[in-house]
Design a binder for these strands. Structure first.
Lengths: 264, 264
DNA sequence: GCGGGCTGTTTACGTCGTAAACGGCCGGGC
DNA sequence: GCCCGGCCGTTTACGACGTAAACAGCCCGC
């Protein structure tokens, strides 16, 4: 494997020893025996990480666990529900991350920073799962991916309100924060996915250029080196800090971050 | 600059007479006959809009066109390729939108505003397709959804560079803009999808509350009315203008929008 | 008039999700 | 000690799916 080596992204899976292994480690000493929902979900995450989402079928997942497909249905009512469980299992890894706290001990900015990086770590650890996190319908319309559990929504809102945000501002911040995380991480993860896919199919000829005609896009051609640079980590940091500054303004001026609307 | 006008969202499908009907209207006078790729893709978009992505199968799409499934394979090599074509067809509606221009006639801010609203209009017109736009692997890793065509990437970069952005700043702006659009629109569209799904299954009992126990989340309960408010349009506007202000700063100060990194 | 190439149909295969019936095993009541 | 009900994984089966391959009607240039 070729390591990209920007200067050691602190959120990259191998870059630190955080969460991201909680589930598979949860198998008790008994080892191979004893199916249960938790073990099935863990195996599904593992399987998707290794083979991709499209490769996950009930039969193959069963085989991966040394069992027939139908055995899974004792613990999982359907494949759809299994996928929901996978999403939940993956975001639940946040609870195992020692750097992310449910309560803000060092201010709301520190809280949001840690939370954002925790989610980013999960996204990078499970790039094939993250699109699922992004697109599965949430429990309620106002629960927004990627923070899909009520417990985190509660935690988020309390943290901000306790820090002096108005209710409206806290809700507004929740929305802005969700959009930011989702957009950045989905793009980052899918960019890596494309790179990987392109890399692991060596079609005989080193570059099987089905390439479209680039001659009509001279600027794209000229900037391709720049476009190809992976600055995900820096961009993420930059955009996150910008968002926090915006929120800081909202907090200090005590206004709802709305403009031009005179209704209230 | 155009006024936001929060009542009557200007990007909602019925709110204006823009694009979004280009493809299906492309059927020539001949009416029902004559299969071709374009007509198949148009029908697929229509089908997904009406029945949802999960309902799209080759057989059903064939039936929708009055034809057997296998007939489609004369024009479309596989279902995967069909989905790629659907994504392309949908974003190509941008070309039919009279409010979106390939070249900036009134400055880069106007250009980016129009482009953003054009994409938003498409997302709202095809909420079931947009997740596909967001998650299908793009042609190259540096082509970022939702602006997935080289022609628009070229247009974007040229517009900004001609307006005085450095090459680095233009690329950086492209990334920030893509993340912003993707995050906001994916969340907006999926929020509406959930609302619609919840609405169109009346399970006998009006509210078939499979509801989790909310008593542990008092803040969520208290803020639910606020959380349920749909302020998508205002949020979009606010975040877009904020992004443009950020870019304006970058442009005026002539610096790459990086902070705290002393390398250059 | 006729033969070849389009175009849509028929048939067929392997895989999928999952319902239903089945069977072995194991622990508690007699 | 024995038996029996419930748990848990297997077997079998069905209809739908994506798609390969063979086929049939039609129309156009010769």
């Amino acid at each position: 494997m070729s390591e990209p080596r920007e200067d050691a992204d602190p959120d990259s899976p191998e870059g630190r020893g955080g969460a991201a292994a909680v589930l598979t480690a949860a198998t008790p000493g008994s080892g191979r025996g004893a199916l249960d929902r938790r073990r099935i979900l863990g195996a599904a995450v593992e399987f998707i990480d290794a083979q991709g989402l499209a490769a996950l079928t009930m039969r193959r997942l069963g085989a991966h666990l040394g069992v027939e497909a139908m055995a899974l249905y004792r613990y999982v009512p359907s494949r759809e529900n299994l996928l929901d469980g996978v999403v939940e299992a993956v975001i639940d890894e946040l609870y195992g991350d020692p750097d992310v706290h449910l309560q803000p001990g060092h201010g709301w900015q520190d809280y949001l920073q840690r939370l954002a990086h925790g989610v980013r770590r999960i996204a990078l650890a499970h790039p094939e799962v993250f699109p699922l996190v992004a697109t599965r319908p949430p429990a309620a319309p106002w629960v927004r991916p990627p923070l899909r559990s009520l417990r985190w929504v509660e935690s988020f809102l309390v943290a901000l309100i306790d820090s002096g945000f108005s209710q409206e501002a806290a809700v507004s911040a929740y929305r802005a924060y969700s959009s930011f995380l989702l957009g950045h991480l989905l793009l980052e993860v899918s960019q890596k996915g494309v790179a990987v896919n392109a890399e692991d199919k060596p079609d005989g000829v080193p570059a099987a250029q089905e390439a479209v005609d680039l001659s009509q896009y001279p600027t794209v051609v000229r900037l391709e080196p720049l476009l190809s640079l992976d600055e995900s980590a820096a961009e993420f940091e930059e955009a996150l800090e910008n968002l926090l500054e915006r929120l800081e303004l909202v907090l200090r001026e005590g206004r709802t971050p709305r403009r031009g609307d005179t209704r209230d």
